[in-house]
Design a protein around this nucleic acid. Structure first.
Lengths: 133, 133
DNA sequence: GTGCTTGCAAATCGTTTGCAATAGC
DNA sequence: GCTATTGCAAACGATTTGCAAGCAC
């Protein structure tokens, strides 16, 4: 029983070789990978891995609150192992995605009549490098 | 030259029968329609309308800043004729989408090193009706 | 051996592309 | 007549589904 197994279990997710590898990848790489990014990165380690499993596993993680599904990139779904609410910035030129710490709760209008369960805050523009050019 | 033509022209978009109809539909229906919603609603009015034209036209509107592309619904792209920055709430049960006025500029952390050009703020949870049940 | 998990292949479906027909100045 | 716009049909590509094989307790 390793750390990642315990981590998965704490979200009610049964560990398996594939699930542990995918979660470890998410926790080690905070670069908001796509399904293909995860698949390509783990194929070497787990040659039999199928893309279906990556899809299923990421969906399982999201449904259990262990992973965030990020839709800042209209082309592909992206995933984030940090589940603390934070904001994402995406450069319209180079496509880089940067985390921005932000106290989202403070921003919300008071007295909303809804139960808010998820926040997805996205900013788009030019990153520091791209804006110089 | 009607109002909608003038409105389109103010965004540098040449008016056409299809473009006017689509923009009028967006301005009259603030319910965040999908491509299919727009297509289905206008087919009666313009029987020869093609879905490709709806796609092309909405893309043209978005590229020219006349329409917002909303990605709160991971299944389909949605569009909003109100281009003032505001927040969207989506009910996870009934799927309704509600506009929330919000001063987004005030929320941003100060001293960001990026040029921010777009804001997309999404909230998800249960709407007033659904949370009662 | 029973139920959960995986992975292949095929299907699905939103969206884009190529290109010929059409409309507007 | 020339250029921009439209619309059909086909292509594309991300994601989902069906189902049989594999794995774990």
């Amino acid at each position: 029983m390793n750390n990642t197994s315990i981590y998965l279990s704490s979200y009610g997710i049964r560990p398996s070789v594939q699930r542990i590898a995918i979660m470890r990848f998410l926790l080690d790489n905070h670069n908001h990978p796509t399904v293909d990014d995860v698949y390509d990165a783990l194929r070497e380690q787990i040659p039999t891995l199928s893309k279906t499993t990556v899809y299923n596993t990421l969906k399982l993680f999201v449904d259990n609150g262990a992973t965030l599904h990020i839709s800042i990139d209209e082309k592909n779904a992206r995933f984030d192992g940090s589940v603390e609410p934070h904001t994402h910035f995406r450069c319209k030129k180079c496509g880089c995605i940067i985390d921005i710490p932000m106290n989202i709760e403070d921003c919300l209008p008071k007295g909303l009549k809804f139960d808010i369960e998820e926040f997805h805050f996205y900013l788009k523009g030019l990153c520091e490098n791209c804006k110089k050019r």
